[in-house]
């Protein structure tokens, strides 16, 4: 019912387009691998494997193929995370009548689609975040690890001090570097000294 309606919306706009349908993950992947498509519109809830697994497969086999995820699931839970997993856009199904055509055009042109509402939210979130010094993005535990690294301690010493495993500390370190946009301990130490964190 929904699939038919969606196709109708697109057919009205893209008069010469060819549509292929797949009822489950297996079928979808088989067609994507065999045939040359310009864009995939993908649901998350399907019989067989989840749409998110299909997305992962597509990213592996056809990294350039745009995938617009269209699902019933709430935008605030799913949109950003699905985009992070390599989708070109995320749209809730009920927005399709108004938004689907525009979104398809956008992802076909190589762009990304999120709803206006979410885009605004992300923008204001980014705005508040970039005003803060990067260490404010860290949790207390991460900040603690940062200070210990900056004080010249090695990972195993920090692990001992916080009674956590070396592996855990290493993962914290990676996350800290990621959040601070740095490449190595030396940069961290430099930053810490400059900002008198150590």
């Amino acid at each position: 019912m929904v699939r038919h309606g969606l196709k109708q919306i697109l057919a009205d706009e893209f008069k010469k387009a060819v549509f292929g349908e797949a009822r489950n993950a297996q079928e979808a992947l088989a067609r994507i691998w065999k045939e040359a498509w310009d864009v995939v519109v993908l649901d998350i809830t399907m019989p067989g494997r989840s749409g998110l697994e299909v997305l992962r497969e597509i990213r592996k086999s056809s990294p350039k193929l745009p995938v617009l995820v269209l699902s019933m699931h709430p935008e605030n839970q799913f949109a950003v995370r699905v985009l992070k997993r390599g989708a070109s856009g995320y749209m809730t199904k009920e927005s399709a009548p108004e938004e689907l055509v525009g979104a398809i055009k956008k992802v076909l042109a190589g762009g990304r689609y999120v709803s206006t509402f979410l885009a605004e939210k992300l923008a204001s979130y980014l705005a508040t975040d970039t005003q803060k010094p990067p260490q404010e993005l860290l949790s207390d535990r991460e900040f603690q690890v940062l200070r210990l690294i900056a004080s010249g301690k090695i990972v195993s010493e920090i692990a001992k001090e916080l009674s956590l495993s070396v592996k855990t500390i290493s993962t914290y370190r990676t996350r800290i570097l990621e959040k601070m946009g740095m490449k190595n301990n030396a940069e961290l130490m430099h930053y810490a000294i400059q900002h008198q964190l150590a």
Partner: peptide
């Protein structure tokens, strides 16, 4: 089943 592909 609400899965489909569009080829434009």
């Amino acid at each position: 089943t609400t899965w489909f592909e569009a080829n434009s």
